[in-house]
Design a protein around this nucleic acid. Structure first.
Lengths: 143, 143
DNA sequence: TTCTGTGCAAATGATTTGCAGCCAG
DNA sequence: CTGGCTGCAAATCATTTGCACAGAA
């Protein structure tokens, strides 16, 4: 598979935009991080590596990565946008523990198919969906 | 079915809170409105009827109605919280046209069942879910 | 009377934007 | 060179909160 840096480069060129060290750094840090980070959290990590980078740049770059198909915005109803790597990842939804906030990535083909049918039934051409299941995980129920 | 005003009254009394004309007005206007309004939009309508009511009161009251089970918060990823009447309504999800923002309420029992199973499979006790299907509606595809 | 509720304005928190200088192509 | 990019600070936008007064119970 193509290197994510190259994917970004291609996207930038196609849009007449430019590659910069800031964008490179932010992409690297974002990709090597685990989980679903907010722009703020990414900014904190970026500061550790390149203290000169401003937080507006991080916000701008994360939006850019989302457009380039490298990052995906997720929203767990906390009032902040989180990002997860999208490139080379299979599509999935999330199962979130309302107590400890642990998040499990889930995917069910049958549900996807039913969603498609449901949209079609109403005359829609489905372009995407968001599904979040909320519950209490095993550990939290025991405790 | 019990009158929504009474449902609110019961909830308030159970919580040691008070009924006020503002709350009555906001509930009325919210219930007679169609669709999925934001607190801001509800505030605009409220001003038409009772100009003295402040917008903080509308925000506070909508949260209250949500706790009382009379309103439900929905989030179409626009950066604002919308509210829809919940009392006496069946559970449903939403199918949203990305072009004209038209929203259709949908419900599929089979999907719900699969969601339950999916959660259980991961050791979760499902407490709720959010599902939004995005697409392009028939009218917009024709146009 | 006793709190809770209200309106107002100020505060918040996440995100965006204006701007002057910087730098990739 | 030139137009996009950056850091900074100021600006937004939705929502929340502090406060003094008002009004349900």
């Amino acid at each position: 598979m193509k290197d994510p840096q190259d994917v970004l480069l291609d996207y930038l060129q196609a849009q007449g935009l430019k590659m910069t060290p800031q964008r490179r750094t932010i992409l690297d840090i974002f990709l090597e991080a685990e989980g679903h980070l907010t722009a703020e959290e990414i900014y904190d990590r970026v500061k550790g590596e390149e203290p000169g980078i401003g937080q507006a740049t991080v916000y701008r770059t994360m939006k850019l990565l989302a457009e380039a198909g490298l990052a995906k915005e997720v929203d767990f109803s906390e009032g902040v946008t989180r990002y997860e790597p999208e490139y080379g990842q299979d599509h999935h939804d999330h199962l979130i523990c309302e107590n400890c906030r642990k998040t499990i990535e889930i995917c069910d083909e049958q549900i996807e198919k039913l969603q498609e049918e449901l949209a079609t039934k109403h005359g829609f051409k489905l372009t995407g969906h968001k599904m979040y299941l909320f519950g209490i995980c095993e550990d939290c129920r025991k405790a």
